[in-house]
Protein backbone atom coordinates (compact mmCIF):
# COMPACT_ATOMS: atom_id res chain seq x y z
CA UNK A 1 0.00 0.00 0.00
CA UNK A 2 3.01 2.28 -0.07
CA UNK A 3 2.53 3.48 -3.62
CA UNK A 4 -0.85 5.14 -3.21
CA UNK A 5 0.53 8.12 -1.28
CA UNK A 6 4.15 7.61 -2.23
CA UNK A 7 4.91 11.22 -3.20
CA UNK A 8 3.34 12.71 -0.08
CA UNK A 9 5.19 10.29 2.17
CA UNK A 10 8.59 10.79 0.54
CA UNK A 11 8.22 14.58 0.57
CA UNK A 12 7.12 14.54 4.22
CA UNK A 13 10.14 12.42 5.18
CA UNK A 14 12.39 14.88 3.36
CA UNK A 15 10.85 18.01 4.84
CA UNK A 16 10.18 17.16 8.48
CA UNK A 17 13.79 17.51 9.65
CA UNK A 18 14.19 20.85 7.89
CA UNK A 19 10.94 22.13 9.36
CA UNK A 20 12.07 21.28 12.89
CA UNK A 21 15.39 23.02 12.28
CA UNK A 22 13.58 26.07 10.87
CA UNK A 23 11.37 26.17 13.98
CA UNK A 24 14.41 26.19 16.25
CA UNK A 25 16.05 28.84 14.04
CA UNK A 26 13.05 31.13 14.42
CA UNK A 27 13.01 30.32 18.14
CA UNK A 28 16.60 31.33 18.84
CA UNK A 29 16.81 34.30 16.45
CA UNK A 30 13.89 36.17 17.99
CA UNK A 31 16.07 39.18 18.72
CA UNK A 32 17.73 39.46 15.28
CA UNK A 33 14.85 38.90 12.86
CA UNK A 34 11.06 38.76 13.02
CA UNK A 35 9.90 35.75 14.95
CA UNK A 36 10.05 34.46 18.46
CA UNK A 37 8.38 31.96 20.68
CA UNK A 38 4.87 32.04 19.27
CA UNK A 39 5.83 31.49 15.63
CA UNK A 40 8.46 28.93 16.54
CA UNK A 41 5.97 26.92 18.57
CA UNK A 42 3.49 26.91 15.71
CA UNK A 43 6.14 25.77 13.18
CA UNK A 44 7.33 23.03 15.51
CA UNK A 45 3.74 21.86 15.96
CA UNK A 46 3.25 21.99 12.17
CA UNK A 47 6.06 19.46 11.76
CA UNK A 48 4.23 17.00 14.01
CA UNK A 49 0.83 17.78 12.47
CA UNK A 50 2.16 17.21 8.92
CA UNK A 51 3.60 13.89 10.04
CA UNK A 52 0.31 12.96 11.70
CA UNK A 53 -1.75 13.89 8.63
CA UNK A 54 0.37 12.06 6.07
CA UNK A 55 1.20 9.04 8.21
CA UNK A 56 -1.18 7.94 10.92
CA UNK A 57 -2.21 9.39 14.25
CA UNK A 58 -0.84 6.35 16.10
CA UNK A 59 2.69 6.83 14.77
CA UNK A 60 2.79 10.52 15.69
CA UNK A 61 1.54 9.53 19.14
CA UNK A 62 4.48 7.14 19.38
CA UNK A 63 6.89 9.99 18.57
CA UNK A 64 5.25 12.58 20.83
CA UNK A 65 3.12 10.73 23.42
CA UNK A 66 -0.03 12.31 24.74
CA UNK A 67 1.13 12.41 28.38
CA UNK A 68 4.30 14.22 27.28
CA UNK A 69 2.22 16.87 25.50
CA UNK A 70 0.43 17.77 28.71
CA UNK A 71 3.65 17.78 30.72
CA UNK A 72 5.39 20.00 28.13
CA UNK A 73 2.46 22.38 28.07
CA UNK A 74 2.93 23.05 31.77
CA UNK A 75 6.73 23.01 31.55
CA UNK A 76 6.77 26.09 29.33
CA UNK A 77 4.78 28.15 31.81
CA UNK A 78 7.07 26.83 34.54
CA UNK A 79 10.16 28.03 32.63
CA UNK A 80 8.56 31.44 32.22
CA UNK A 81 7.67 31.75 35.88
CA UNK A 82 11.01 30.38 37.10
CA UNK A 83 12.85 33.02 35.08
CA UNK A 84 10.85 35.68 36.85
CA UNK A 85 11.38 34.11 40.27
CA UNK A 86 15.13 33.75 39.59
CA UNK A 87 15.37 37.48 38.93
CA UNK A 88 13.48 38.12 42.18
CA UNK A 89 15.85 35.81 44.10
CA UNK A 90 18.78 37.78 42.70
CA UNK A 91 17.32 40.90 44.28
CA UNK A 92 15.65 42.58 41.29
CA UNK A 93 12.02 43.00 40.18
CA UNK A 94 9.97 40.20 38.61
CA UNK A 95 11.34 39.60 35.05
CA UNK A 96 13.96 42.33 35.37
CA UNK A 97 16.57 40.74 33.11
CA UNK A 98 19.43 42.98 34.28
CA UNK A 99 19.79 40.52 37.14
CA UNK A 100 21.50 37.89 34.96
CA UNK A 101 24.48 40.12 34.14
CA UNK A 102 24.51 43.24 36.29
CA UNK A 103 27.71 44.54 34.65
CA UNK A 104 26.41 44.13 31.07
CA UNK A 105 22.67 44.93 31.07
CA UNK A 106 22.49 44.15 27.32
CA UNK A 107 23.78 40.62 27.89
CA UNK A 108 21.36 40.20 30.74
CA UNK A 109 18.46 41.25 28.53
CA UNK A 110 19.65 38.77 25.89
CA UNK A 111 19.78 35.81 28.28
CA UNK A 112 16.46 36.68 29.88
CA UNK A 113 14.69 37.06 26.54
CA UNK A 114 16.12 33.74 25.35
CA UNK A 115 14.75 31.94 28.42
CA UNK A 116 11.32 33.61 28.20
CA UNK A 117 10.99 32.92 24.48
CA UNK A 118 11.95 29.30 25.05
CA UNK A 119 9.19 28.93 27.61
CA UNK A 120 6.64 30.51 25.26
CA UNK A 121 7.74 28.29 22.37
CA UNK A 122 7.47 25.10 24.42
CA UNK A 123 3.98 26.01 25.63
CA UNK A 124 2.72 26.94 22.17
CA UNK A 125 4.05 23.67 20.72
CA UNK A 126 2.24 21.75 23.45
CA UNK A 127 -1.04 23.63 23.00
CA UNK A 128 -1.04 23.28 19.19
CA UNK A 129 -0.26 19.56 19.26
CA UNK A 130 -2.86 19.04 22.02
CA UNK A 131 -5.52 20.78 19.89
CA UNK A 132 -4.56 18.61 16.91
CA UNK A 133 -4.81 15.44 19.00
CA UNK A 134 -8.18 16.51 20.37
CA UNK A 135 -9.56 17.13 16.86
CA UNK A 136 -8.02 14.11 15.17
CA UNK A 137 -8.75 11.72 18.01
CA UNK A 138 -12.47 11.57 17.32
CA UNK A 139 -13.54 8.09 16.21
CA UNK A 140 -12.66 7.85 12.51
CA UNK A 141 -15.37 6.94 10.05
CA UNK A 142 -12.78 5.53 7.64
CA UNK A 143 -9.59 3.53 8.20
CA UNK A 144 -6.50 5.62 7.68
CA UNK A 145 -5.24 3.65 4.70
CA UNK A 146 -8.29 4.33 2.52
CA UNK A 147 -8.38 8.11 2.06
Amino acid sequence: MIFHHLILRVVTKLLVGTIILFALYVQFHGDFSPGGGFQAGVIMAVAFILYGIVFSLESVKKVFPEWLVHKILALGVLIYACTGIATMLLGYDFLDYDAFAPLHPTHGQHWGLLAIEFGVGVTVTGVMVAIYYAFAGRPPSLPDEDW
Binding site: V16, G17, I20, Y51, F55, S59, V60, K62, V63
Partner: peptide
Protein backbone atom coordinates in the same frame (compact mmCIF):
# COMPACT_ATOMS: atom_id res chain seq x y z
CA UNK B 1 13.17 13.50 16.26
CA UNK B 2 13.52 12.34 12.65
CA UNK B 3 15.02 9.03 13.77
CA UNK B 4 12.15 8.54 16.22
CA UNK B 5 9.70 9.26 13.39
CA UNK B 6 11.45 6.71 11.16
CA UNK B 7 11.10 4.08 13.85
CA UNK B 8 7.46 4.92 14.63
CA UNK B 9 5.96 4.57 11.14
CA UNK B 10 5.51 1.43 9.10
Amino acid sequence: IVRRMDEASN
